[in-house]
């Protein structure tokens, strides 16, 4: 639940989602669910020249399981809150 809660706090901020097939998409985080499926709005593919068929995609749903990384906005990370939440989660099992 830790990362689900964390990503809910990031809604409205810009993130870059890098998929396991190397496609990277930047967009505004619209929503997230417990599986870390995510919806992005105002999307832009990072390497547009390589993926011209993605030019018309402006919004998307990404299944959580295909995500490799999510690059986070620097102002969206409070290190102390993350530490505390992680320790609480580790205790809870």
């Amino acid at each position: 639940m830790l990362f689900f809660s964390y990503f809910k706090e990031l809604v409205g901020k810009e993130v870059t989602v890098e998929l396991k097939n190397d496609l990277a998409i930047t967009g505004v985080l619209h929503s997230v669910d417990q599986y870390l499926n995510i919806k992005l709005e105002n999307t832009k593919v990072v390497n547009e020249a390589k993926y011209p068929h993605m030019l018309s995609v402006k919004n998307c749903f990404i299944r959580g399981s295909v995500v490799r990384y999510i690059q986070l906005p620097v102002d969206g990370v409070d290190v102390d809150i993350l530490h505390d939440a992680t320790r609480r989660e580790a205790r809870g099992g």
Binding site: F3, L36, L72, V77, V79, L82, H83, T86
Partner: peptide, 21 residues
């Protein structure tokens, strides 16, 4: 996929999802 990361561990869960800095 022959990838390696080095970074500061800020958060993790039981799946090994992580936030690194």
């Amino acid at each position: 996929g022959d990838r390696e990361l080095r970074g500061k561990l800020h958060a993790y869960d039981q799946h090994l999802n992580m936030v690194l800095g």
